[in-house]
């Protein structure tokens, strides 16, 4: 049963794609044009997102116009308005500042151009796409509970959290999803949860050192970003406290390397290509009349010591053979499937 699910979903979504594709081609002679407005273009994460989006265009035979604000909200608004003037079929945008797009969104509405919003809500969005940061946080917690249970034979222990910048949504959700789950385990105590300022690595170092002094019986540290946990892992190694388990978030190159060498037990990979595919594919579907839910959040992939080999193969396939990647499947199924096929 478990193994058949992905196949069934593949068939269903292929059928959906095919049906929509035929409909679109039938309606118009020229290929549809979809606009994508990025935050910038020079970050590996953004580059990977665009690669996923271009694959969505290739598969479905539409033209993708990629623009960006290069970090400047005024330029982003201009890029957005240019796309409206070009009369694209739909726009997918990751706004630098959602408040700056009021008039631009009205222009799009007046031109009947649906807008897919990425990571931020704006008035008039056809749908809002984002990451399931809170769900991902709870996945990390479940894995942490598993690790503590392996250590003690029952779920108990002392946990500390390296927070990011207070007040940011990703900080609230990544930590909130984690503590929600731990609240169900009375013998697991969150002894400390402290901010690292603006996600600062040197603060993560100082906090970890101070925790080693203040809480000598610490069992596990959860850091909300690889940029915090990797420095923390160095502190633990230098102090000879590698018995303290580290679980992380982000799935960056240094984070995955940490899982590979065992200094981190897990991280959450956000699969930018997968996200980028859906950011653009959703705009295409909306343009062709498919109704999307008001919000559509994508989960990340838990990368642990156990499924690392599978995930590494998945990353290679995404880079080298994107045309064959099963983007239409839920990300959890893809990762589970790779995990089974490429076990360590």
């Amino acid at each position: 049963m478990k193994r058949k699910m992905p196949f069934l979903m593949l068939v269903v979504s292929l059928f959906l794609v095919l049906a929509v594709g035929i409909g679109a081609v039938g309606a118009q002679d020229a290929p549809l044009r979809i606009g994508l407005v990025q935050l910038g273009t020079d970050n590996p994460f953004w580059i990977a997102q665009v690669a996923g989006g271009e694959e969505a265009a290739r598969r479905n035979g539409f033209e993708l116009i990629v623009t960006s604000g290069e970090g400047d909200v005024t330029r982003q608004v201009e890029a957005f308005e240019d796309l409206v003037n070009q009369g694209v079929a739909a726009i997918s945008i990751n706004p630098l500042d959602a408040n700056a797009f009021g008039p631009a969104m009205e222009q799009a509405a007046a031109a009947n151009i649906p807008v897919v919003c990425l990571f931020s809500y704006m008035d008039g969005c056809a749908t809002v796409l984002g990451f399931e940061e809170r769900v991902n946080g709870s996945l990390v917690a479940q894995y942490a509970v598993q690790l503590l249970t392996e250590k003690y034979g029952e779920p108990r222990g002392n946990v500390a959290i390296l927070l990011g910048a207070l007040g940011q949504d990703i900080n609230t959700n990544r930590s909130g999803g984690f503590t929600d789950v731990l609240a169900n385990y009375p013998n697991i105590t969150v002894v400390a949860a402290e901010s690292t300022g603006n996600w600062e690595a040197d603060k993560a170092v100082a906090l970890t050192e101070n925790w080693l002094t203040a809480y000598p019986d610490l069992d596990l540290i959860y850091g909300l970003s690889d940029s915090l946990t990797v420095p923390a892992s160095d502190v633990l190694r230098r102090a000879g406290r590698e018995d303290i388990l580290l679980v992380s978030y982000d799935g960056t190159e240094v984070g995955l390397a940490g899982v590979a060498d065992g200094s981190l037990r897990s991280t959450v990979a956000l699969l930018p290509q997968y996200n980028g595919f859906w950011n653009v594919y959703a705009a295409y579907l909306v343009a062709t009349g498919v109704q999307f839910p008001a919000t559509y959040y994508m989960p990340g992939a838990m990368v642990t010591t156990e499924n690392l080999a599978g995930f590494q193969q998945l990353s290679v396939d995404l880079a080298d053979n994107i045309a064959a990647f099963p983007f239409e499947l839920p990300v959890g199924n893809i990762v589970a499937d790779y995990g089974q096929r490429f076990s360590n």
Binding site: N198, E200, A201, D202, V230, D234, V254
Partner: peptide, 14 residues
């Protein structure tokens, strides 16, 4: 030396 990883925001605000 002490953090072991250079992230894009290292030292900002110092």
């Amino acid at each position: 030396a002490s953090t072991g990883v250079i992230s894009p925001n290292l030292g900002s605000g110092s």
